[in-house]
Nucleic acid binder design. Structure first.
Length: 790
DNA sequence: CATTCCCGCCACCGG
DNA sequence: CCGGTGGCGGGAATG
């Protein structure tokens, strides 16, 4: 290994011919003024945007149609055009002479890349991606495209077809992938590993000597059983066996692992440092080699940039005892615990392989438990691997060679392919349902869902939850101490215990509610908040551009949406409004539809309507997120006063939103439930500094929102909620309490969302004899994490 | 100085 | 042997 490195290092600074390709890439010939050292090339044709605008555009532009526009790029030699371009270029230069690195950032590039393809491509059109073309069109070297594609591949958003080709799947598989990843993550005990690391560092503050640590680490924490290879998705295997070579792939695998960390950890925040350590530790324990660490971090940044572009995560800073460390917060959809087996697989789900999935993922099952010793672990791993290979081998007709990691076992590739299309379609339809809970709508009768008053069209959604709940508990190993039945919600943990929590049984979360409604509402709120808040950068992408137009910030990207979509939304919105109105009368005054639903947050609804993906716009992702959150939170909301999920909900609309960083003090949380009407009033008051108060407000708002109109009458507390508050918020939207806006506080309370399996402590019974990790001990006192973003 | 992360050399692999 | 891939880490931008 090292040899290679050395070699490289030795070489003198780059000088030679390296540039050849770059030259090629430069499409525009003549105008090239040598003068500008940076690269003017980017500017090219018609897109002399500022980084900011550019971004904005990209975001808004996600719609399919637009993407085509890229095409025009082929500038005919129109001298005119050239000139024009040149001109622009120059102007551009003047304005800002910094082509700057940012413009070349992987994140931005990724946005461009993503803009080319619809989030939910129709099955019909085959979306092929030709790396060369893309690279050329985006004016980047191919190497960069690989970086992007690799991570997309890790999420199964694309798959390799052949040499220069990839197939675009968009987000269709996303939820499934995440589920799978989460599961694997759980199996790997990532949660514990994380704990370990934190603990360690906590203990010896900043110690550099890795010595002892290492030992400890390997002894228990870092059991890296894992090494798992690439996690495959069931439905996706059909690619030609040939093309995927397994090996390499580290980026892909790393990406998956990284994602797993988010899915598994409780406050869904993962610091780079921790992630790097875990990822390193996995393969070869020890070796806290500094350079290795550094490299890992670099890679993580690459991955993170892509994930950020996908809006799955966003950058934040975690302030712990000492300094603030870079970290990322998951902003993607919540992954439901899922599943497998327990919930009757939706019929529609064509995917036969659900089981396979699990199989694939990790042979693991109980094994790990007894594996304490590293060596053992390795063995096991190996064995399992082999086994896996074997299994897969026979099945795939084609190859022997490959036995690609994926196990196509069950389906012969051919079969897979044929149905593939159908599958996709189905998936698409069921998708929404799945996402929300994975159940097919029709399946379940929801028992107690009285509250579904919602007239909305989505009754179906509500159902699923009901069904699933029970199953989960069985599923996730970790879960809890509390019987599902119990009224767990009331439990508040001491902050220190945070991780331990698991307060509620999953079943709770799943309560039936009209998600749609809820979602909508929430999203709205958040929206509102965002607006105000948004000013700041939401994502890392924000450029520093001084001129930053507010407009850009404003996110009503909606404009770009197609009218049809809009209509859809609108209608839904209206429905929601109605619901809402019940609660707050004032709403109408403001032309609610526009006001509140501008951005398309509503989309979730659309989505809810399972079925037609047509409706989805790219934006829906936001919807999705919110939807899911909602799912959990809403019902619960009633039950559990303030759940993390609630809070999260706010953040969710990731894209535009400013992530408020919330840091709730535990106390505040506890308090919340308690509060009742009386407290409510205070909601908007400015209590700026006081976190708890702000939290409360926040909470209240949310709570209020939800219940209000819609569903939750069940909960007494909610009912009491003063409507006024809500309305207030809405209206004053812009005036959202400062507190919220400020980076300050949020509650990252540790309640995990639903499936939160993780809570390590009590749960996982770790059977192995060594109790080193006794559960009790395991968790580290959580220090408060302050998350802030810049 | 610290953080972020672009760039592109070059090892590798599959054809 | 070739061209596609993608590991990797120097070191430039940025903060």
């Amino acid at each position: 290994l090292e040899g290679k490195k050395r070699k490289i290092t030795s070489r003198p600074p780059r000088a030679p011919a390296a540039t050849s390709h770059s030259v090629l890439t430069e499409i525009q010939p003549d105008c090239q003024p040598l003068t500008t050292p940076p690269k003017p090339k980017e500017i090219l044709p018609a897109d002399p945007w500022t980084p900011t605008s550019n971004l904005k555009m990209l975001i808004s532009a996600a719609s399919p149609e637009i993407r085509s526009r890229e095409q025009r790029r082929e500038l005919s030699n129109n001298s005119r055009e050239v000139l024009q371009a040149k001109h622009c270029l120059q102007v551009y230069e003047y304005e800002k002479s910094q082509p700057s690195r940012k413009e070349k950032s992987l994140g931005l590039l990724c946005h461009k890349f993503l803009a080319r393809y619809p989030d939910y491509p129709s099955t019909a059109e085959n979306n092929y991606i030709c790396l060369d073309e893309v690279a050329e069109e985006l004016n980047v070297e191919r190497r960069r495209i690989y970086d992007i594609v690799n991570v997309l591949e890790s999420l199964h958003m694309v798959s390799r077809l052949a040499k220069n080709r990839y197939a675009w799947h968009g987000r269709h598989n996303l939820s499934k992938t995440l589920q799978a990843l989460k599961k694997v993550g759980e199996e790997n005990k990532y949660t514990q590993q994380i704990q370990m690391i934190k603990k360690r560092e906590y203990e010896h503050e900043f110690d550099f000597d890795g010595e002892r640590n290492e030992e400890m680490a390997r002894s228990f924490g870092s059991n890296e059983h894992s090494e798992m290879s690439f996690v495959e998705l069931p439905g996706m295997e059909f690619r030609a066996a040939s093309v995927n070579s397994r090996k390499d792939k580290s980026l892909r695998v790393m990406s998956q692992k990284f994602v797993m960390l988010f899915l598994v950890s409780t406050p869904q925040i993962v610091s780079l440092e921790v992630a790097a350590k875990i990822l390193i530790g996995e393969d070869q324990l020890e070796d806290l080699d500094k350079s290795k660490f550094k490299t890992k971090i670099r890679r993580l940044y690459d991955i993170a940039n892509v994930l950020s572009s996908l809006e799955l995560i966003k950058k934040v800073h975690v302030t712990e005892e000492r300094g603030r460390k870079p970290a990322f917060k998951w902003t993607g959809p919540d992954v439901l615990p899922n599943v497998q087996g327990s919930c009757p697989p939706p019929i529609s789900e064509s995917i036969p392989s659900k089981e396979q999935c699990s199989k694939n993922l990790f042979p693991s099952r109980g094994k790990q438990n007894f594996t304490r010793h590293p060596s053992l672990i390795k063995l096991v791993k190996t064995i399992e691997n082999d086994r896996r290979k074997i299994q897969s081998a026979p099945t795939s007709p084609v190859k022997m060679s490959a036995s690609t990691d994926q196990n196509l076992s069950a389906l012969p590739s051919k079969m897979a392919q044929v149905p593939a299309i159908a599958k996709h379609q189905l998936e698409g339809q069921s998708k929404s349902a799945l996402e929300s809970n994975q159940l097919s709508p029709e399946v379940v009768p929801k028992p107690e869902t009285p509250r579904v008053a919602a007239p909305s069209q989505q009754p179906a959604l509500a159902q699923p939850p009901a069904v699933c709940p029970p199953s989960h508990s069985s599923v996730s190993p970790v879960i809890l101490p509390h019987t599902p039945a119990g009224v767990s919600y009331a439990i508040y943990l001491h902050p220190s215990q945070a991780h331990t929590v698991t307060t509620y049984s999953p079943s709770f979360m799943l309560q039936p509610l009209p998600c749609a409604n809820v979602t909508g509402i929430k999203s709205i709120n958040s929206k509102v908040l965002n607006k105000t808040t948004t000013e700041e950068g939401d994502n890392q992408l924000t450029t520093d551009d001084p001129t930053k137009s507010l407009t850009a910030k404003e996110r009503p990207p909606i404009k770009s949406e197609t009218s049809s979509q809009r209509c859809l939304k609108r209608s839904q919105a209206l429905q929601e409004n109605n619901l809402i109105k019940k609660c707050r009368s004032d709403e109408e005054s403001l032309d609610p539809s526009l006001t509140f639903f501008p951005s398309g947050y509503l989309i979730p609804l659309t989505q809810c309507t399972h079925g037609n993906k047509a409706g989805f716009s790219n934006k829906e992702k936001a919807g999705i997120c919110s939807l899911q959150h909602t799912t959990y939170s809403s019902p619960i909301a009633g039950v559990i006063p303030v759940t993390a999920s609630e809070l999260k909900a706010v953040n969710i609309p990731a894209f535009q939103i400013t992530p408020l960083n919330i840091m709730l003090s535990p106390t505040s949380i506890a308090a919340a439930p308690v509060l009742s009407n009386s407290c409510l009033n205070s909601s908007n008051t400015s209590s700026a500094q006081n976190p708890s108060s702000s939290v409360l407000n926040f909470t209240l708002q949310h709570i209020g929102l939800i219940p209000a109109g819609v569903q939750v009458p069940a909960n007494p507390v909610l009912q009491h909620m003063p409507v006024s508050l809500q309305s207030e918020n809405k209206y004053s939207a812009p005036s959202v309490p400062k507190e919220l806006q400020e980076p300050q506080t949020v509650t990252e309370n540790f309640f995990r969302t639903p499936g939160g399996p993780n809570t390590v402590s009590s749960l996982s019974a770790n059977s192995d004899g060594t109790d080193r990790i006794s559960q009790g001990t395991l968790y580290i006192p959580q220090r408060k994490l302050e998350v802030s973003e810049d």
